[in-house]
């Protein structure tokens, strides 16, 4: 097709889907947190990195394998999120966005700096779990099992989150509290607790994404810092509209990036930023965003 070997096209598409999985999971968490707390969580990348490191600690210090880490690391990161919300973010309620942004940005620097101090900038290896090594020859391309797992698993997590928020009664409470927290609280619902748990859940998703990425990208203190800039562009492009928007935009932009690598590799690192600039020029609230 267009003189591009199919093999290359599909491998880049797969790579795009993988990146898209991470974009989707991270921007989903950002959207949920922003909706409920009105905070642009700049610590998201650092907490994603922590997810990967917790998996690495669990393996190397406690002998807990990948599958255990997949459950435990998000819980640990989520619990840390609960502490951050209760001790710090809660005090910012009602203040301008900028305060939340500065505080979480500072947190990200501290967390990343701390890890860098101990582990340097190079990566710690994390092996693919034995059940997922190897791959399938699909004829037109080779599909590594672990990568297929990442795409399927993160898509499942994203859709489950969408379902929980859009289709369940707990999700209805969350949506209502995003709209009018005062009234929801006056119905007898403990909104401050919901806010804390929402933050915990949002950053647990980041931690989960961190575990998923550990076998692919190695475990590096700055792995989140590199990724989060792209994720914020994804959020800007999609607009802070809804859960589904974050998921679709995340995957779509991952694929865009992958395709650019095939057709014009030089632009692949900036294509998302170019799209962001164009979208901002045409629709400042993002493609699907509601104008403030």
């Amino acid at each position: 097709m267009f003189g591009i070997p199919t093999q290359a096209l599909f491998s880049q598409l797969l790579l795009g889907l993988i990146n898209g999985s991470f974009y989707a999971m991270l921007s989903l968490g950002l959207a949920v947190i922003f909706g409920m707390l009105n905070i642009v969580n700049f610590a998201h990348g650092a907490l994603y990195m922590m997810g990967a490191f917790v998996a690495w600690f669990l393996l190397n210090w406690f002998g807990v394998n990948y599958w255990g880490a997949l459950v435990l690391a998000p819980l640990v990161v989520g619990a840390l999120g609960v502490v951050i919300e209760r001790t710090m973010l809660q005090r910012l309620a009602g203040l301008d966005h900028l305060y939340g942004l500065l505080l979480t940005f500072g947190l990200a620097l501290i967390i990343q700096g701390g890890f860098q101090n101990v582990y340097g900038s190079s990566g710690q290896p994390y092996a693919i779990p034995p059940q997922l090594t190897g791959g399938q020859n699909l004829g037109f391309m080779f599909l590594p099992n672990y990568r297929a797992w990442v795409v399927v698993f993160s898509l499942t997590v994203c859709l489950a989150t969408w379902f929980a928020i859009e289709k369940t009664s707990l999700g209805a409470k969350l949506r209502a509290a995003t709209e009018n927290p005062t009234l929801v609280r006056a119905f007898g619902i403990n909104v401050p607790l919901m806010i804390t748990l929402t933050y915990g859940f949002g950053v647990a998703l980041a931690g989960l994404a961190g575990v998923l990425s550990a076998p692919i990208n190695q475990v590096r203190p700055l792995m989140g810092a590199d990724l989060i800039i792209v994720v914020f562009s994804v959020v800007v492009i999609g607009g802070m509209g809804s859960i589904m928007v974050s998921i679709v935009t995340g995957f779509a932009l991952g694929i865009c990036e992958g395709l650019t690598k095939v057709f014009y590799p030089e632009a692949s690192n900036i294509v998302i930023f170019v799209i962001m600039a164009v979208v901002l020029l045409i629709k400042p609230a993002g493609l699907f965003g509601r104008a403030a």
Partner: peptide, 26 residues
Amino acid sequence: SDRIARLGIAFCPEERGIFSSLDVKE
């Protein structure tokens, strides 16, 4: 206010407070 509500007081605000992101049943 959540504790007051749980004592058995309920409030119907002047602006009605119907949530646009929820359907009627929700």
